[in-house]
């Protein structure tokens, strides 16, 4: 109960204010306050993180890849997590950045898929709709200064149209035939653009797989937060397939010949 009569406001009088348009002044609120307001936790930095996600367009649809590592700083903390997530039958999303935020995103995406299914209106969410929804969520959260600390790739095929787009913690979006998050944006994108641009409608699944595999290898060689274990997702008209974990084939024999960095006898 507010015991200050000046805060009660002026009662309205139908005689001169039939529609309740009398200005209602801003008065201090004496209602219940959130005692924990100061203690609200916000993601101000990512904790358990995933590194690059790669994706390309090819003849039959979209191919996306991400390794199975979730790091805790420089510690390779979880080595068997999946950073690829299917939404419905037409869409794949891949996430870099904070893994707990990604798991939250997975739950909200599962929720809207369920909701959309229960409507039974003959419509289903395609990759473009999922991406639009995600970008609105991401942008709204950044505007509240409480971002979901991720960079996400959304890919898919629906009604014969390939879709591939990016959205990140700032709500920045863009689309291209090759996309990568994190370190992949620096190391893999040049390789992917060289191999894919202009060949989006002719690259076979095998060729696309080779390009992705090679890029994942380059990332494993040079990105210290990466792992030689990764999954590839394929979205075609037939649906979404996420592979078992694959191994990056590496060769370190060249290291034998390097001289001059450590203690060598000769």
């Amino acid at each position: 109960m507010d015991h200050f009569p000046t805060n009660w406001g002026r009662p309205r009088h139908e005689g001169f204010d039939a529609y309740g348009t009398f200005p209602i002044h801003q008065r201090p609120t004496n209602g219940p306050k959130d005692a924990f307001k100061e203690g609200i936790e916000r993601t101000q930095q990512p904790i358990v993180t995933g590194t690059s996600v790669l994706a390309i367009k090819y003849k039959d649809g979209i191919m996306m890849a991400a390794d199975n590592l979730a790091s805790y700083g420089s510690l390779a903390r979880f080595k068997d997590i999946s950073r690829l997530h299917a939404v419905g039958n037409n869409t794949i999303i891949g996430a870099g950045g904070d893994m707990s935020d990604f798991q939250y995103i997975q739950t909200i995406l599962d929720d809207i898929t369920t909701e959309e299914f229960t409507a039974q209106d003959g419509h289903s969410l395609g990759p473009a709709e999922i991406h639009e929804y995600l970008s609105q969520v991401m942008y709204a959260r950044r505007t509240k200064m409480n971002p979901l600390w991720n960079a996400l790739l959304v890919g898919g095929v629906k009604d014969g149209k390939k879709f591939l787009a990016y959205v990140d913690l700032l709500g920045t979006t863009y689309s291209a035939s090759t996309l990568a998050t994190g370190f992949g944006g620096h190391l893999a994108i040049p390789l992917l653009r060289e191999a894919v641009e202009g060949r989006e409608d002719t690259l076979t699944e095998e060729e696309a797989l080779r390009i992705i595999e090679n890029s994942m290898r380059v990332l494993f060689y040079r990105d210290a937060r990466s792992l030689n274990k990764y999954q590839v997702a394929i979205v075609t008209e037939a649906g979404v397939k996420i592979s078992e974990s694959l191994k990056v084939e590496t060769s370190w024999s060249f290291a034998e010949g390097i001289r001059g960095y450590g203690a060598q006898t000769q």
Binding site: Q44, Q45, R142, T143, M145, P147, L170, T172
Partner: peptide, 10 residues
């Protein structure tokens, strides 16, 4: 103390 920067330049 690294606070979140809600802006970038494109």
């Amino acid at each position: 103390q690294q606070s979140f920067n809600p802006y970038t330049e494109n």
